[in-house]
Design a protein around this nucleic acid. Structure first.
Lengths: 228, 228
DNA sequence: TATTATTCTTAAGAACTTCTTAAGCTTAAC
DNA sequence: GTTAAGCTTAAGAAGTTCTTAAGAATAATA
């Protein structure tokens, strides 16, 4: 498997290269967007890891260009300080992203996950999954959520939370875990944010929010979506 | 869980130690990079908190060395005055970092977050285990407990006790042992707390709490869940 | 810029859990 | 058969977690 690592910081590229080679991947390097495009042209690449901030052609633009004619998974790298939402918004072409400083294990896990998806689904297959439990259906491709056939309109944060829980129906997530997975930041205040979003989601997907059928609390632990 | 705290400033080490011990972690100390390497060699460490500026082998180099053969999460400590971006760039081996002076709550949150990440990513998507004995089934992923197919609703403490006993069905645990494992504190006995929880659990999982089928007392020793 | 939608914060109270106390019961040992 | 120690049980006080509403802050849209 060939992986292209693109970042203007040579140390980072080198470090990532070591981790990936350790897992048996062949690694190609690029220092900016143009080099990345060239590398993808010239070699059969199976995955690209791309920094966002780079001189010349930046990572977002390069990703769009790569995606124009190739179907290669792209994982974005971004500094934690950059505005997450903005990245997410612009980030349409990418399949996943990781914030710096990152955990090498996490990087490997995400790389494997992307390669798995692309090889098992076949590269023509759309990446949108459909998640279901009972009458609750989430179509990740169209971002449509339906309950017993009725379409429900969720806001972005609400959608991410519900998707996380539904994709892993049955598993209990603590509030901190939800916060970390959805916001991609370490949860650290004893804030009530997640709870409020849970409330709003219930309002929309549950017939009776007081006796939720899908989105249940597990006292003292967290929340889960019932596996039905 | 064992955590190594490495800093040449003894006061900081001591302060961090207190916070961490308060959360139930076992804390090891090191005053410089070499001591840290030695500590990691000699003991099974689950996480390292490492200052960057230290005499002798500094934190960055020590981290790289630790990472060469161990897969332990490392959280860097750095003074706010040091150039954040530079740290980030150099910081490839680390998983997270905290600037001094830091908020103890934040430190704890980040420690927990890293340990969580490593335990869920490290062991290949740890699916919660299922523990069974006779008709009693505990699904640790969904925290669901069923007796002969009937779902039973346990509180967090009740759940932890029952899980401990069921996961080790047949083994007898003294009240003090149960207390220590579940509360992560040294039992200071004379209290009746565990007994009361046992009562409540029986009420929920036993058909006739007076003649328990699963959760049995071993007179003068403790309690066990019958291995069936 | 004004308007609207979304997200976050706050705070009060409801729901639930945990701990303590104390009395009654059972077992083991003398 | 009496006693001491260990276990069971009930009830309520204290503490924690969850829910909910309302408004402030922020972002998106016109």
């Amino acid at each position: 498997m060939n992986i292209l690592v693109c970042d203007d910081d040579k140390e980072i590229v080198e470090a990532i290269k070591i981790y990936l080679e350790n897992e048996g991947y062949k690694v190609f390097k690029a220092a900016n967007g143009l080099e990345a495009l060239k590398a993808v042209e010239e070699n059969e690449m199976h995955l690209v890891i791309m920094d966002i901030m780079m001189p010349g052609l930046d990572g977002l633009r390069a990703t769009v260009r790569i995606r124009e004619d190739k179907n290669i998974p792209v994982i974005m790298l971004s500094a934690k300080s950059e505005d997450t939402d903005k990245i997410m918004g612009l980030n349409m072409g990418a399949d996943d992203y990781i914030t710096k400083p990152f955990n090498p294990l996490e990087l490997i896990a995400r790389v494997k996950s992307q390669l798995r998806r692309y090889t098992t689904l076949g590269s023509l297959e759309t990446k949108g999954h459909i998640y279901k439990t009972g009458g609750l259906v989430i179509d990740d491709e169209s971002k449509a959520v339906t309950v017993d056939g009725e379409e429900v309109n969720l806001t972005p944060v609400q959608y991410k939370i519900l998707k996380l829980l539904t994709a892993n129906a049955g598993r209990v997530y603590s509030i901190d875990e939800i916060y970390e997975k959805v916001w991609k930041e370490t949860a650290f205040s004893a804030e009530n944010t997640v709870a409020v979003h849970i409330r709003r989601i219930r309002e929309k997907i549950e017939i009776n929010p007081k006796e939720p059928k899908y989105l249940k609390v597990v006292w003292g632990i967290g929340y889960k979506v019932e596996k039905i």
